[in-house]
Design a binder for these strands. Sequence first.
DNA 1: GTTCGCATCAATCGTTCGGTTGAGTTCCGA
DNA 2: TCGGAACTCAACCGAACGATTGATGCGAAC
Lengths: 211, 211
Amino acid sequence: MNEPLRLLLVDDHPVVRSGLRAMFEDSSDMLVVAEVADGEAALEVLRHTEVRVVLMDLQMGEGMDGVTATREITSLPDPPAVLVLTVYDTDADILAAVEAGATGYMLKDAPPEQLRAAVKSAAAGETALGPDVASRLFDRLRSPGEALSPREVEILRLLAQGLSNRALSRELFISEATVKTHLVHIFDKLGVDNRTAAITTALRRGIIRSG
Amino acid sequence: MNEPLRLLLVDDHPVVRSGLRAMFEDSSDMLVVAEVADGEAALEVLRHTEVRVVLMDLQMGEGMDGVTATREITSLPDPPAVLVLTVYDTDADILAAVEAGATGYMLKDAPPEQLRAAVKSAAAGETALGPDVASRLFDRLRSPGEALSPREVEILRLLAQGLSNRALSRELFISEATVKTHLVHIFDKLGVDNRTAAITTALRRGIIRSG
DNA sequence: GTTCGCATCAATCGTTCGGTTGAGTTCCGA
DNA sequence: TCGGAACTCAACCGAACGATTGATGCGAAC
């Protein structure tokens, strides 16, 4: 362990970047070689600088978002490890990051030692998950949670536009009775009992997206 | 300006706290006298320590949330200024903080100089608002009768949790009739005719956030 | 000192929603 | 070929929702 671990910080908040920098500069075995505010800049740095671990925020106001950047980075030849560092532990974010090739997923409320340990794990190619994250992933895998059928997702998507049952039926060329049947199944699978709760739950789980 | 400005940092993220600390320690005219992770701890510190400005995060995983803490702090005798520092600029967050007595409202993606300037403004008793925040508030004041009232935003926020009218009335200690009246106004102002459409419209406009 | 916005409550009424039960189709895999 | 999952439809009913009308108190603005 002669050479320090070379890190790249990607976060759109100056406050967070300087906090991370301070945190890692305490360790003589780590070196922050650059810090940038978005995905494009991260890729640019990686083009001409050797980096072992990228600390990646997911939500970035403008520019390339974290998931996209992670996907791009991990598809590079001889890529650095990407350790996602975010404030959200929602299923949608976690799954998206893991699917994009993230080596680890930590929450920003983690204590400094945990973060440093996670960076070292990531550098060694090991998966590093925060405690909450690990349990959440585990829950998900253990109980498939009754996956929604394609038709049900379609209903949910339109439901989130604020359509009534009648409007839904017209949009999908089915009867209102069928719409209601689908809704019953959706409510059941999501563990809710009305359409508004269904929408927020679906958004949280990443089943649908708003916008 | 002999004595440095005494600051208290309240944020549940160690990373952010150390980032803020680093940011303010660069200025010899500011001094971080303590940093804590939740509202209760903040109040405890204030009991025996003189502080001029409190840097307050709104979202804190456990313990007293930022709005409540702000309300408590500003109701103290000879209270310090509370400068809210968060990542969200939705009407719901901003209005709640202002109602609670916050002196300023800044976003975490603000550059260091802006943050330091905001702290000084707050210490002088002046309101300090981030650019996006200011324009949001400005829009409201410019068009009264069209923008949602604080109460309406509050209703909307709970509505997005999937609560029924009855549940809303219980949560807010008002009658179901009043809830319905608010909903009528909300629907009217948002140009929708049901609660699900109201939620998605409010999310899209940044009036509330999901999660 | 009156107007206006805001928040509160009440009563009524038609509509929509959600729960229940039951049943027909197709299609795929065991 | 049998069974199950997915999608479809129907009828019923109580509960929740949304629209309407009307009313009170309060504070800030003008």
